[in-house]
Every structure is written in C-alpha cells, then in structure tokens.
Amino acid sequence: MRSTTATFFLSLFGLILLLTSCGQKREPINIGGNTWLGYQPYYLAKEEFGCSACPTHDSYVGGQAFRINMMPATTSTLRLFGTGELDGALLTLDEAIGFQSRTQIPICVAQILSYSDGADAILAMPDFDPDRPFVIGNEQSALGGFKTARGIEALKWIDKPFEQRVVHPASHVDALLSGEVNVVVTYEPYVSKLVERGAMVLFSSRDMPGEILDVLVVRQDIARRHEDSLIWLGSSFWYHGLSMMKEREESLKFIAARTGADLSDLQTALSGIHFPSWREAQAFAEQDYARILGVLNHYLLSYQHLTVPGNIPLCENIIYADPAPAISFYD
C-alpha cells in the first residue's frame, strides 16, 4: 500500500512538472539596429504587422515572438547588446567583429541582410594627381578605415605622398569641392551628390563585393533557444518588409519621415545596396563568408582597430535552414 501510494504521488508530481514546463512561455527576442536603410525592412514589417502572423507567437509571453527597436545610433545598439538588454543586433560585419573582439561574448550570424554594391566609394575631382602630395578625407570609424585601406591597396597608393584627415560624413561633399581634401572616402547619398558635381569614382564597393556586409547577429544561446522564430523572422517577415520598401513609395516616405532623410537620397542609396534572396544568402555564407571574415579581421588588426581577431561563426541551423513558408499578413 505504501509503495502504491508513493508511486501515485511520484507520478502526480511528474505530471505537474510536465504541465508546468509545457506551460512556460519564452521571453520575446529583443533586436535593435540603427536607422540605416539596409535595416528598414524589419522596421517596416514591424510597424504594419507586428507578430500576429508569426507561427510561434503562442509560445511567447504576450503573444510576441520578438521586439524590433530602431536605435538612434550604432553606439546605443552595441551598448545594449553588450549588457544583454538586446538579444540580437543589426550591424555591419566589421562592427560585429569589433564588438566580439572587445567583449568576447559568443555571438553568431543569424542572417545576411545586404551588402554595399556601389553605395560606398572613393572619389576625387578630375584634376587629381596621385603623384603630387594629397590629402584623403574619411570618417573616424573602423569601417571608414577599412574602406580607405582597401582603396589605398587597390589603387596602389601605398608609396604615394598622402596624409589622412578625419572629416565628418556630412562635410564630405564640401570638403572635396572646396579643396580641403583631394580625395574623399564616403557613401551614399554623398557619392551621387559628388558625381553630380563632376567628381570621379576611383574605387567603390563594387570592386570588393560582399565586404561591406550588413548582418543580424545574435547571442549563441539565443540562437539555440529561438531557432524556429529566427528562421521565420529572417525569411517570411524580412522579405515581406523588403518588398514593401522596394515596391511601395509610401514606405520610403515613411522611412524619410522617421529618419529625417531626403526621399531622393533614400532612393539613391537603395540603388547601391544588394539584398540577396534567401538561397543567394545561403550560397554567399557557404562560399564567401569565411574569406570576408578573414579579410576584415586582417585589416582591422593591421590598422589597430582590434587587438585580437573577432570570432563570429554562422548560426548554421538558421542560415542553412529551408525558408519558412510565406504567410498572409492579412488573415
């Protein structure tokens, strides 16, 4: 009798534990990024739909699988990612490398979002002579330093008589046109504004395809716990937002209103960004990611932006998964 009673209570206790664990809901995945155009598909889809169509929403607190936050600057994104207030971050790969190198937090790439395809460039006026002393103007950032280094190497300027000067991006156009600098390392919309004024593109991101790369990185424990939601997020949700941005003029107007950018500048910048399909991103991850990670680490270490290499693997179970089926957001 005592044995039967003990067995009954043990079985009852096990059932309670099972029901409790089944009833536990996951906290939403918290993702943040700055106002860059390449991240806007997430913000657009979030504004219009939230996660009502997300197939995993019932397993999350509040019925929301994720929260997507547009931050005022990359510094805010990195700070909150570092403290754990963000589970994932929308960053350029060089920014992610710098973050991982400094913090040693284990992160992985959950999605390849886009890469610059002409939106970043090195320009000079037609009378530029690289054999005479010249000044290169660039922004004070790891990415600015990387673009400058790649250009110097490609244009064979290593032994040329130049110096570098920090110029704020908003001043890039005036600095080159006024002669304050002879060469400027910049990005859209400043590239197009300078070309309109007669500047020549000497080198651009088209000459280093995939090296200026936008990614979604997440903490590795988050990738393991939320694999299903991250696959859906990076396929169904992202590509719907991307379609909105490319096909609806009101979406670009919405972005312009929220970021304070000029509508024509957004359209110009969009033409210099390549957004790969899910399958194209998978091929890129398999064939090019390791090489580009190595290239970025090499330059960032060489120019003392890093002290140790950044180690960022792919979240392979997410990157190489089949895309989630398209979902009607209007059901």
Rank of each mutant, 00 (worst) to 15 (best):
F162P: 11
C315M: 08
S277T: 11
F146Y: 12
Y39F: 08
A199W: 03
L314T: 03
A110F: 01
E180M: 12
V184N: 04
N297G: 15
N138G: 11
R248V: 10
A170N: 09
R219E: 06
R132P: 12
I136S: 05
L301W: 14
P325G: 08
N182S: 13
T77L: 03
E249T: 05
A73C: 12
V181A: 07
G260Q: 12
V135Y: 00
Y39E: 06
E188Y: 04
R150A: 06
G14L: 14
G137Q: 01
A326G: 11
V215W: 01
E139M: 15
F146M: 11
H305K: 15
I152P: 09
S178D: 14
L293M: 14
M1K: 10
F13P: 02
R165G: 05
P130L: 04
S229D: 08
A149P: 14
I319V: 15
L194I: 11
E280I: 02
A124Q: 02
N317Q: 15
V201I: 15
F81P: 01
F237M: 04
Q111F: 01
S76N: 09
Y115T: 05
I327F: 00
E316V: 08
P323M: 15
F99V: 07
Y239T: 00
E211V: 06
Q220D: 08
D117V: 14
I222R: 03
Y42E: 00
S243R: 02
S178L: 14
P130G: 12
L78V: 08
A45P: 02
S235I: 03
D117S: 15
L194P: 06
N30D: 09
D214I: 04
Q40V: 03
G145T: 13
